[in-house]
Design a protein around this nucleic acid. Structure first.
Lengths: 219, 219
DNA sequence: AGTCATTTCGACTAATTGGTCAATATGAGA
DNA sequence: TCTCATATTGACCAATTAGTCGAAATGACT
């Protein structure tokens, strides 16, 4: 009948909590992959997660909070993917190409991720702001032949537009036999590099560090 | 107390009907321009249109029906914009460039149209299928230097991706001082044309037929 | 002013949704 | 096996939403 260590109690609680919270985030990801973020309801989420409704509100104040959690997880994965290239590559075009290739690789072996990423940028533009900003800086640093005709603002939209559409296509099962390098080459040509320059950048791109093949075929 | 012509009665009715229906479609356009299609409710529509709820169901069976009507109106505007170029231009690159320029011009002086068009392609992919198909055919006809590396499927996503992102940007007020030709040039380079070829196509593009400046600053 | 086919109106119901909370289940440790 | 801090549960409420329908309004014509 003696009391048990309260600190230990809390730890057990945290573990259980974390598991359930992860279930909810996982369910949201599955739902966001197949329908518009704005059309998902709390009931949808708890049904998908196999959890009672009250449990949802123990972990999140509202759907927006859950959406924010999904967005944060996504931003985290962005940063992890983009980090290695940012620190090691000095040439702007190489950094841009590296980032795009990382996105495409990720999308190629996790189409659900691609679908969710594409949908979330439309629903919560806030999350993507950092990546946009960094890409914009790289585009400004890009050496250009005809500065008066080149606009970093336009190039930003061009790169983002191509990448988002590729993510959407892969997320919907289209373009499954996609040539990574062809996409990157198209992007580089669109932002002003010559065809040979673009090819050169693609060839000089360092081989990706072997990924810890986590969620390859999950769900 | 004599009866009046029943045919005349019907005609009066049709006019009133058409006016109210147009109000509803107009309201839907305004709403779709500022929020996700999936988050718009019937109450939103009738409030925006200044019409009673019952009236909505006289004209449309459901929100989907209204959305379809908006989509059809949009597709109609697409066809009108693209028709002149399709009949008069024999070179595929010219046809593609002409179509893109038409879209950009329209978006530049009707940002609401741009926002709605971008949102609708995500919500009702069915409407855009025809335009996609025609663009795909043009891309297949495009003469290419290295056929083994060129994929019309990829180029389709690239062109659509850039155009959609430009529409979104203009619909959100970004990129308002946009250089039309820079966008078209970027698109042509992305799908494999050389820089000079792209410039040549842009310069050979026929001047747009003077538009009947309809809804320039409406709403 | 009176007629009447047609449209519009808005209060109503049923179903869905967001959000709450007292009751119950859990499970490691004593 | 019993304790108890913590997490989970699902019935419940209030607000919103989709969809219906009889009543009121409209307006060209006589």
């Amino acid at each position: 009948m003696a009391n048990i260590n309260p600190a230990r109690r809390a730890e057990i609680g945290r573990e259980k909590r974390a598991r359930t919270r992860a279930q909810l985030v996982e369910a949201a990801n599955s739902l966001f992959a197949r329908q518009a973020v704005e059309s998902v309801t709390v009931d949808d989420v708890v049904r998908e997660a196999g959890v009672a409704k009250g449990t949802f509100y123990v972990h999140f104040d509202s759907l927006e909070a859950l959406t924010a959690a999904v967005a944060e997880e996504l931003v985290q994965s962005f940063d992890e993917m983009l980090q290695p290239g940012r620190v090691s590559l000095s040439e702007p075009a190489l950094r841009i190409a590296f980032g795009c290739r990382a996105f495409i690789d990720k999308a190629l072996n996790d189409s659900r991720w691609a679908a969710v990423a594409a949908r979330m940028t439309a629903a919560t533009p806030k999350g993507g702001e950092n990546i946009r900003r960094r890409l914009f800086e790289d585009l400004q640093q890009l050496p250009t032949e005809s500065p008066e005709e080149t606009s970093a603002e336009l190039n930003l939209e061009v790169v983002v537009g191509i990448m988002l559409q590729i993510l959407r296509a892969l997320g919907e099962g289209r373009l499954s036999s996609l040539n990574r390098d062809a996409v990157i080459s198209a992007i580089l040509r669109a932002i002003g590099l010559g065809a040979q320059e673009a090819e050169s950048v693609v060839e000089r791109l360092p081989t990706t560090v072997p990924e810890k093949s986590s969620r390859a075929a999950a769900n």
